[in-house]
């Protein structure tokens, strides 16, 4: 499973989100590769799941991968809950 975290430049805040997504996955016992990139590169990365802030959701809608909006990148609980919901729904 390949998960992408997205931000405007793909270097700063998406990396912060990636760290906390990794932590959330670990506590859920889910094994996945997490990588961070910018909005425009997201299309070529072929991810199974994308996590991004609300501001980038619209520009990711055309992609095949499901997209989860994260409001607070520092809230591991929010990330955990949203991931859990997603994995249960599958």
């Amino acid at each position: 499973m390949k998960i992408l975290t997205i931000c405007g430049l793909g270097q700063g805040t998406s990396l912060l989100l990636k760290m906390n997504v990794q932590e959330a996955l670990q506590s859920l016992g889910i094994d996945a590769d997490v990588d961070n990139t910018d909005v425009s590169s997201a299309a070529v990365e072929n991810a199974d799941l994308i996590l991004a802030g609300e501001y980038h959701i619209d520009s990711l809608k055309h992609l095949d991968a499901p997209v989860i909006a994260i409001t607070d990148f520092m809230d591991v609980e929010e990330i955990k809950n949203k991931l859990q919901k997603f994995f249960k729904g599958e």
Partner: peptide, 18 residues
């Protein structure tokens, strides 16, 4: 690109490219 750098409640992380 918008205020997406406000990544958490009360916290902004401004940055630019190398």
């Amino acid at each position: 690109k918008g205020p997406y750098i406000v990544i958490s409640k009360n916290l902004a992380i401004p940055h630019a490219r190398p």
